[in-house]
C-alpha cells in the first residue's frame, strides 16, 4: 500500500469534512448566566483571599514582635507593651467610677 498517497488522500478527506459551525440554541444566554454567577463567586473569592492575606500578615507581625520582645531587654519590652496597651489603658481610665 502506498502510504504517502494514503496519507494525502486521508488529509484531503479531512479537509472535505469541514466542521459544522452551528451554535446550540440560547448558548449565549448560558454563557452570560455563567459569567454572572462567576462574577459573584469571584467577589467572595477576592474577599476570602483578602482576609487570608490579612490574617497571614497579622500572624507574621505578631511572631516578629514576639521574637523581638524575647530578644530585647526588659525595658524595651515593657515600653512596647505600654505602647500597645496604652489605648486600652486610657479606655479603662476613662470609665466613670460609680
Amino acid at each position: 500500500m502506498k502510504l504517502g498517497e494514503l496519507h494525502d488522500k486521508l488529509i484531503l478527506a479531512a479537509r472535505a469534512d469541514a466542521p459544522d459551525c452551528g451554535v446550540p440554541y440560547a448558548f449565549e444566554k448560558r454563557i452570560m448566566a455563567g459569567l454572572a454567577s462567576k462574577q459573584v463567586e469571584d467577589l467572595w473569592t477576592l474577599w476570602g483571599a483578602g482576609l487570608w492575606r490579612g490574617a497571614f500578615a497579622s500572624l507574621l507581625l505578631s511572631v516578629g514582635l514576639s521574637i523581638w520582645a524575647l530578644q530585647a531587654n526588659g525595658e524595651q519590652a515593657q515600653d512596647l507593651e505600654a505602647t500597645m496597651f496604652s489605648a486600652a489603658e486610657q479606655l479603662v481610665d476613662s470609665w466613670p467610677d460609680y
Binding site: A18, P19, D20, C21, G22, V23, F27
Partner: peptide, 9 residues
C-alpha cells in the same frame, strides 16, 4: 461562537 464551535469540533 460559530467560529469557536467549528474549531472545537
Amino acid at each position: 461562537s460559530p467560529r469557536l464551535f467549528a474549531t472545537a469540533r
